[in-house]
Design a protein around this nucleic acid. Structure first.
Lengths: 126, 126
DNA sequence: GAAACCTTGACACGGGCGTGGTAAGGTCGT
DNA sequence: ACGACCTTACCACGCCCGTGTCAAGGTTTC
C-alpha cells in the first residue's frame, strides 16, 4: 500500500507539511484518513500536489485563485453569472450590437473546449 | 453626451469614487478619459458596475476573483492548465480510468456553454 | 479668480493569504 | 514505555485586499 504520511508527502512534493494541511483546508486536495485520523496521500494526490506546485509557480496564481476556479466549475450559476459579466463589454460598450458578444462568447468557449479535448500539451499558442 | 464623472457615477452605481478607481486599477472596468484625464463613465460602464456589484454581493466573490476569471478567459494557456488540473481527480484518483474524466469534463463544458447561450435571466435569481 | 470637482499618491486599518512555529494531546513502532 | 510521528488549535508575521481619508496639484464653471 503506497500511501504516504503528511511528512513524507511533504518531502516528495516540495511542499511543507503545514502547506499540505493548508491546501487541504482550502479544499484543493483532501487526502484520505487512516482510522486514527492520519492523512494518507496516495500516488494520485502526490502527483496532483506536484502539478499544483508547478501551476501556481509558473503562472503566479494563488491557491485562492485555484479554489475560485474550482468553485466556478462546481457552481454553474456562479459560472454563468461571471461569464455573462465578463462577456459583456471588453472593449467598447456602445459599438457592439448586444447580440454579438454572445457569439463571441460561444467562440471562446468552443476554443476552450477544443483545448480541453486535446488535453495533450496545452501550450502551443501563446 | 451621457458620460458621468466619477462622483456622479459613484452615486448611481452605489460604489464609492474610491472603489471606482480601484476597480479600474484592478482592470475590471476602465472608463474613457476626457482630454484633461477625467474619467468618463458611459451607460455601458454604469450598467456593468451595477451588475458587478450584484455579482460580488450575491456570490460573495472578491474583485480579485473576477479579475482572475477575466485572466482565465484571456490566457488560454492558463485556462487549459487550470482546467486540466481541476479535471484530474475530483473524487477518487485511483478508481477513475484516466480517460473518463475527459468525457466528464466535456460534459461540464457543454453545460456551461448551454448556460451561456441562454444568457437571459442574469440578475434576480437566488 | 474662487468654488467645486478632478487626478495621482500616500498613510492607515481591519481582514485574509501564505507561511512558520509551538503547545497539548493521540498513535505507531520497537 | 519511550521516541518519533500525527492531529488540532493558536499566535505571529509580512503582504495584499477593500476601503476611507487626506494632501498637492490641475480643470471646469461661474
Amino acid at each position: 500500500m503506497d500511501a504516504l504520511t503528511i511528512q513524507e508527502a511533504a518531502q516528495t512534493t516540495e511542499w511543507s507539511a503545514r502547506m499540505l494541511r493548508y491546501i487541504e483546508q482550502a479544499g484543493l486536495i483532501e487526502p484520505q484518513r487512516s482510522d486514527a485520523g492520519y492523512r494518507l496521500y496516495g500516488p494520485g494526490e502526490l502527483q496532483r500536489l506536484r502539478t499544483l506546485r508547478e501551476l501556481v509557480a509558473q503562472f503566479d496564481v494563488g491557491l485562492g485563485d485555484i479554489g475560485f476556479a474550482m468553485r466556478l466549475r462546481r457552481d454553474e450559476e456562479l459560472a454563468g453569472a461571471v461569464d455573462a459579466w465578463l462577456a459583456a463589454e471588453p472593449q467598447r460598450p456602445d459599438d457592439v450590437p448586444p447580440a454579438d458578444w454572445l457569439r463571441w462568447e460561444q467562440d471562446k468557449h468552443s476554443k476552450l473546449l477544443a483545448l480541453a479535448r486535446a488535453t495533450t500539451p496545452a501550450t502551443t499558442h501563446a
